[in-house]
Write a protein that binds this DNA or RNA. Structure first.
Lengths: 244, 244
DNA sequence: CGACTTCTTGAGGAGACTCAAGGGTGGTGG
DNA sequence: CCACCACCCTTGAGTCTCCTCAAGAAGTCG
């Protein structure tokens, strides 16, 4: 179990001390299993909580009155789910499992204690949230100002970067448990057009996508198509509070 | 101590009763004036900082390789600018003034001390960031899954809610210093299509927009057109750390 | 009043959508 | 172990929203 916990994303910015990790585990409830497709938390639910995704992939979606939905983000193991809704009376988005997933729930009170007792950890939580904001900003730019192929390219690049962070040895071939329907709802396209745009990417030799195995064949081309500059995380974090 | 969200925001940037706030204010540099159109901080700049917008409106934009740009957000007085880029090596977005603006710069070190010494204020900063994430998520849903009129409706509603928070007496008529070009870059539309969609909103008696004065004539219709449920901020924030 | 910016409208074109139907693929049970 | 079913992918055809190009009208500021 400790191995699972070690992947929690706080490690992205700074090595996590054992004490920090222990504290995180203490905050969380007992991990619970969810089947593929299961809803973890519904849009509109009261008193939103935070969740730690220990294994599996999940996604977050917002309902559109007309009947459709927008997928906001997919979550990888180690991600923190549900933070945005902490600011709201009711959850802003639905969380559901894309694959079988193991998830631990965290009560807001634990986050309050974290800010009180572990300023460094709290600051890391804050930083991760800022990183997520950048990702959302980039998705807005991608959806708002690039064509279908560009949106898919941008999405693939973000996924690739995130998978690489979780598993630095992943290389250019990795598993993506997303259906074309999901890609459509992530990019704001129709599933038919996603299919056609993927075919183009395939025919142009940019990616190979067979089943759930995605291979990036031409990273430079993907970046060019995405039309948005890749981001690099801060390395100078000397301004963070020292560990206690 | 019962903090409504609104007072927090006002407290944070108008009144200065709290010692914690005094610290943040002390850490801020001397406020600087920017003319309309002036760039506050450019995308790609190293060692990103945070900024306090004391008066005026600004906006944040991301460049698209093809030549266009996406406006991510407009900022109103009292807003914190530049937080997302704190997670990055280089600023993710360009900040520029929509009107003459007064802005104070804050060094990341001050934020570090804030987390160390003022857990309650740090937690509020965290919460504000989560609220911003929800706004971004809603914009993604709006841009990705609604038509031109819906995107404009959603944008107008968000602006209205934010103006109301800053000035609860504003009512349904308020000043919006945005050109149609800005609306286009905010919604991911062309300026021509923005013009036509605004005309439709006008002809349907939903809004009146003359010069910089925007009047909402039919709030219910706007909400229906936007196709995204309005959000309500959390009122139970008892989990926040107590003030020191 | 003149120059510049911003808004408005027209016309034609393209990217993406909807509707619809056929083809793979994998899982399950007889 | 094969057959069937459900789910997912693929492709075609026609349509519509939104885009681009272009030019003139209205507004704004020195």
């Amino acid at each position: 179990m400790v191995d699972t916990w070690a992947t929690v994303r706080l490690t992205a910015f700074a090595a996590l001390q054992d004490a920090d990790l222990a504290e995180l585990q203490n905050m969380a409830g007992k991990p619970k299993k969810f089947a593929r497709g299961a809803v973890i938390r519904e849009e509109g639910d009261l008193s939103p909580k935070m969740y730690l995704l220990l294994s599996g992939w999940t996604a977050s979606s917002i309902a559109i009155a007309g009947g459709g939905r927008q997928l906001i983000k997919v979550h990888l193991p180690g991600d923190l789910l549900g933070l945005p809704s902490l600011a709201l009376k009711q959850a802003s988005d639905t969380l559901f499992a894309l694959t079988p997933a193991l998830i631990a729930r965290v009560d807001p009170a634990a986050i309050g204690r974290l800010f009180q007792n572990s300023p460094r950890l709290a600051a890391l939580l804050f930083l991760i949230s800022q990183e997520e904001r950048v990702r959302l900003m980039d998705r807005i730019a991608s959806i708002g100002r690039t064509n279908a192929v560009g949106r898919l390219a941008g999405l693939i690049l973000q996924l690739h970067a995130r998978v690489l962070r979780n598993n630095p040895d992943a290389g250019e071939e990795f598993e993506v448990p997303l259906l074309q329907d999901h890609l459509a709802d992530l990019t704001g396209l129709s599933k038919v057009h996603v299919n056609r745009s993927l075919r183009q990417l395939r025919l142009d030799g940019v990616v190979r996508w067979k089943g759930r195995s995605l291979t990036i064949l031409d990273l430079a081309a993907l970046n060019q198509l995405a039309e948005i500059a890749p981001r690099e995380l801060a390395h100078d974090l000397s301004w963070l509070p020292g560990s206690k």
